[in-house]
Amino acid sequence: MQPVKDITGNAIPLNRADVDTDQIMPKQFLKRIERSGFGPFTFFDWRKDPNFVLNNAAYEGAPILVAGPNFGCGSSREHAPWGLEDMGIQAIVAPSFADIFRNNCAKIGLLTVVLPQEDVDYLIARAEELPAQRIKVSLAQQTVSIEGTDWARHFDVDPFVKHCLLEGLDDIGLTLQHDEDIAKFESTRSPLLPTTSTAA
């Protein structure tokens, strides 16, 4: 995983609540066994509407997505964050996120930022009005700011997630350092617990 740096650029305003991962990455694209190349398939069905925000050339290549509450609900498919990342999104700002989606983003270095609804509304309005408006998301400072204005907001982030993202740490590598703890735990597990080889 690449370390997350400060992200600056324009933002895509996606003013919808409860955007589910079936919309972000429809099922027909989950058949691929690769991890990359999902970008063009994001919001595949919504893109059929010429007025859909992602069809607006002004937002092409924008690194920030601003969306409504409960973003990423539904299926656990990590293909959804992979697609967003592949299309160039580096940070998503919303009033709330679904749990699994948020975890999945953290694992691949895609930053999720929670701001109050009114701040998100403001960012969305600003991005709709001025598609080229540059916004800065700084994980190190834990701030979202609108360039050229004094609008800036602080956001909370789990300290461990922040540390891993800033350093680009590999979870598995970290956990494997605690191999002894795992082995110790295993030695205390009840012998009554099932294994897949013990069927009667």
Partner: peptide
């Protein structure tokens, strides 16, 4: 790696869905 893993909770198990990165983590470390 499926959000409806919560089904197994009916037995009084703590069961939840995870993403593919977490699947890899569980495969490697249990």
């Amino acid at each position: 790696g499926d959000s409806h893993t919560s089904t197994h909770g009916a037995f009084g198990a703590l069961a939840f869905g995870i993403g593919t990165s977490e699947v890899e983590h569980v495969l490697a470390t249990q």
